[in-house]
Amino acid sequence: MLSIENLSVAYSGKTVLRDLNVSIPEGKITALIGPNGCGKSTLLKAISGSLKIATGKVRLAGQDLTKLSHKNRARCLSILPQSPITPEGLSVRQLVSFGRNPYLSQWGGLSVEDLQKVQMALVETGLTDLADRPIDSLSGGQRQRAWIAMVLAQDTQYILLDEPTTYLDLTHQIELMEMMQKMNKNGKTLVVVLHDLNQACRYCDHLIVMKEGQLIAQDAPHKIFNSTLLKQVFALNAVIINDPVANKPMCIPL
């Protein structure tokens, strides 16, 4: 289990997260939801170590992640940031091979096993035919799949994705959510920041709801997703109905 204990993070003199306690259940898909600026991305950055933590701990299976070396931490969990930069001319296979970094020496040579993992990630994301194409020549949906493949090659139990669907059209959003379900079936624990609440309810087993750097609620969608919560967190008037296809709660704004 990944648990965040009494986590506080401040940057530019402003406290973004205050005494946050969250635990992420193993083997499930957890959605991190909340209004813009509520600290979702900050939480992911604090977990990945890109941000300095003021107080608190990030524990994975009892181990304090903040005390691990960079590479050892990257063997425990992988994170895909919101808008990674795509270098010009980099091929899909090269990008995916970067996912093996935590297992490589400083010189970066890939072993046979590393190459196998890269190939597996390409197969799992359906990118084998595009493997030698430059990423900047791909469509938005294919590009996002290439980034997911990189994260898969990292071969970690926990995978954290920051708004992976934001720049995709609806078809590719659904494709990505289904790919996440497949990854979950193969044993991965996923944490994903989402803005589409109905997608969060439909595809995720667990919701973590945040506002102003604090935890408001966390549980399965059918237990906590209701109009009072939406009013409180998003200042939104909505009715909640049952999604007839997925049998999950679904909101319709008023």
């Binding site: 890109s50 960079h70 050892n72 940031p81 990674p84 795509t86 270098p87 970066g108």
Partner: peptide, 21 residues
């Protein structure tokens, strides 16, 4: 000796951090 890490750094600081650089 820094070449490989610089390749990863080109993906952005956050991504490089997440990859263990």
């Amino acid at each position: 000796y820094l070449a490989w890490s610089l390749d990863l750094f080109a993906l952005g600081e956050d991504t490089a951090d997440a990859l263990g650089v």
